[in-house]
Computed example of a mutant assay.
Amino acid sequence: MSRDGKVVTMSQESQPATALAEAAATAGHAPSVHNTQPWSWRVLPDALELRSVADRQLAASDPEGRLLAVSCGAALHHARVALAAQGWRAVVRRRPDPDDSALLARLTDLSRVPADPEAMRLVQCMRVRHTDRRPVSDEPVPISALDQITRAVTGEGGRLHILDRDQVLELAATAGQAHAVEAEDPELRAELAYWTSRADAGTGLTAEVLPEQPAQTTVPGRDFGRPGSLPIGPGHDQAAAYAMLHGDEDGPDSWLRAGEALSAGWLTATRLGVSVVPLSAVVEVPGTRQTLRQLLSGIGFPYLVLRLGIADPAHAGPPHTPRLTTAQVVDTSAVR
């Protein structure tokens, strides 16, 4: 079944092009910065191409395209997992054309393999995964869960550094500094206002997923410039774990891989009942991104900070963010 609810028969599933189209549709569940969904897919008879969409890049806060590439990498991992769940193996060629920077990946050379049970479970996690910005409960994240999430990230070539208490306090100060810098930038404020006022547009952050007031937490959340309607309750983040997704390089290839690692870690967290909230403001500001690198002792480049926690079970969480339709992001004209 596709993201739009279309039932696919077993005979159809045996066709590579249909499997690729279904994988691209399923990838629409992937997380992206401000829910920009900055990707598009082109289905060919024997390949699937992933492209970035410049119109959905955050020109003010992400001029280098770091967060765009991370977002697209998450979609790429979603598509790979969806293929594995259907019983297909594909060769992934990342950034296959040096002269076409928008072409991020091509999945080719499909072959039949047994359906992967773990991939099938992760596809189910894609459908329920969401970002819950409420304060977490007082229940700490089990060490075993952090270990599994870390292994999932590592399995995709990324690294996850769990911050100790002193580093969390430094992160809190760094996040506050990043928010102060962005609050003084009119272009950044205008960009944020745009992506938080796109009701019924299929992208962006609706009021229902944004806190109605700032939470009293150690690490401040982003000020979206307007209150949402999500009740936050009396909780705190004292039981949360904070982690830094990072790697050895800081270029387009590594950003794409970081997105794949993010997806793997987030889906694993969802399977384990762990809430994930990405904190991107601290990597958007050059000065605070450098501070994060110092937390890594200068041996890695930070891509994203994650808050990991157990959601408060006493209050209903936010709805899912809106999504573009499959027809808007998946081009199947070459196989019709």
Rank of each mutant, 00 (worst) to 15 (best):
S2I: 05
Q12I: 05
A17I: 01
A21E: 08
A27H: 03
G28M: 11
H29T: 01
W41D: 04
L44N: 10
R51A: 09
S61M: 15
D62E: 05
L67V: 07
L68T: 13
A69K: 07
R80P: 00
Q86C: 12
Q86N: 10
R89T: 13
A90E: 12
D97L: 06
D97G: 03
P98D: 11
D99G: 15
T108R: 13
D109T: 15
S111H: 14
S111D: 13
A115S: 08
D116F: 06
M120S: 15
H130R: 11
H130V: 01
R134T: 03
E139A: 08
P140A: 10
I143S: 11
A145R: 13
I149D: 05
G155H: 05
G157R: 09
R159M: 09
H161E: 15
R165Q: 14
D166A: 11
T174D: 08
Q177M: 14
A178W: 05
A180H: 14
E182D: 07
P186R: 15
A190T: 11
E191V: 04
L192I: 14
L192M: 15
T196P: 14
R198H: 08
A199N: 14
L210E: 03
P214C: 11
A215F: 00
L230E: 01
I232P: 02
D237N: 09
D237H: 09
A241V: 03
D248G: 02
E249G: 09
G251R: 13
E260W: 10
E260M: 11
G273D: 07
L279Q: 11
S280P: 00
V285A: 11
P286R: 15
P286S: 15
Q290Y: 04
L292T: 02
R293I: 04
L295W: 00
S297F: 07
L304T: 01
V305C: 07
G317M: 01
T321G: 00
R323L: 03
T326E: 11
Q328P: 05
V329E: 02
A334V: 00
